[in-house]
Simulated assay, not measured.
Amino acid sequence: MRIAIITIAANRDTHLRFHLRSLARSTVVADEHVVVAIGDPAVADVVASEGSTTRLLWIEHDQGPLPLAYARNAGAAAALAAGAELLVFLDVDCLAGTEMLQRYVAAARQRCHRHALLCGPVTYLPPPGSLGYDLDHVHELRCPHPARPAPPAGTVLTGTDYNLFWSLSFAVTAVTWNRIGGFCTEYTGYGGEDTDLAQTAAAAGVGLRWVGGADAFHQYHSVSDPPVEHLADILANAELFHRRWHRWPMEGWLHSFEELGLITYDPIHRRWVQAV
């Protein structure tokens, strides 16, 4: 089974450096790693300085919301053109556990799981030391996100709640990717595109699986809760999702924005609007 990793990157130099180093320690070596640089020439410098065999794919971008969905699709298309049979999407902020690829491949080889979205547990890491994360010991910090399933290593759990899917770390066979049709590229910027992919998969009869032992470790960076810096993107993407699926995504954030007085719900037009 030919394995391809797809990573999209912009303005995450240090995270990308450790991301690449973690993959170099994997028990299974991918046949292809496509890093999609979204308007950031420094991505090529990081890849070169790490001596990586990663294939760089450039996407023009000057300003405005990042085209995350488009970039992921472009990375997948490049991997498929090179003969990939299993696509592994790993966020640039994530370190790969040494057995992550091995566990995804094992799940994809099982007839009962190969036509599903395969999702691995993700641990959010504390801030690193002055020299960055110690990759020899990062596994000791394992504490998967409590809102999502994390079955024991070597086991695969069938999921039913597609709202729990996220794009930080997941794998899908080429056949299933084509069945889903990829990410909807109408989404730009932060939020919603991964929930849409999961909804599209569910509508196409694609299953959801949680793969024990396919661990990834999310490197620390400062965030807002709720992410007010992404308010405009989230509002636009939430409205797009509602138009496509007739329900609201990211409701926790929307209600938090409402409590902060940043948005209000217009019951006449049935939409969220930014407060004046």
Rank of each mutant, 00 (worst) to 15 (best):
W248Q: 04
G191Y: 05
H115F: 12
G205C: 08
R12K: 14
V34W: 10
G205Q: 11
A79D: 00
R271L: 09
D31L: 09
W245R: 12
A174K: 09
N178W: 07
L157G: 05
F18T: 13
V47G: 05
Y265I: 05
E99H: 13
V35D: 01
L125P: 10
Y104H: 11
W245G: 08
V29N: 08
P146E: 03
G159L: 00
L262N: 06
E50W: 03
P41Q: 00
S22C: 05
A42W: 10
A203R: 15
E239G: 14
L90S: 09
L260F: 03
E32N: 08
E229H: 11
W58V: 15
T7V: 08
F165V: 09
E32F: 09
G205D: 03
H137I: 04
E251K: 14
M100D: 02
A232C: 13
A48W: 03
A82N: 02
S222Y: 13
P267A: 08
A147V: 13
V47I: 15
R109E: 14
D225R: 13
V88Q: 03
I3T: 07
A198H: 07
F241A: 12
A79I: 02
A203D: 07
T14C: 06
N11G: 13
L66H: 09
I3M: 05
V122E: 04
S256R: 14
G51Y: 09
R21W: 03
A216V: 14
T160E: 12
L86N: 06
V138D: 07
A171G: 08
N178V: 12
P152F: 01
G192H: 04
G261Y: 00
R209T: 05
S224E: 15
T98D: 12
A106E: 12
A71H: 06
E251Y: 08
L66G: 00
V92S: 14
P126C: 05
R55Q: 10
V223M: 12
A236P: 08
V156D: 00
A171R: 11
F165S: 04
D233P: 10
P128D: 00
R103I: 02
F89W: 08
P267C: 06
A96R: 04
L86C: 05
T54I: 06
G207C: 07
A147G: 01
A9R: 03
A201S: 06
L131A: 15
M100A: 15
S222M: 12
L141I: 06
C112K: 15
E85K: 13
G83R: 05
A81I: 05
F257P: 04
L68T: 09
P149Q: 01
L68P: 03
G181F: 06
F170S: 11
L141T: 11
A9L: 07
I3L: 15
M250F: 03
L260V: 01
P128Q: 02
L131K: 14
E60R: 13
T195G: 08
S22V: 06
M1S: 06
A108H: 07
V273P: 02
P41R: 00
N11A: 12
R25C: 07
G120T: 02
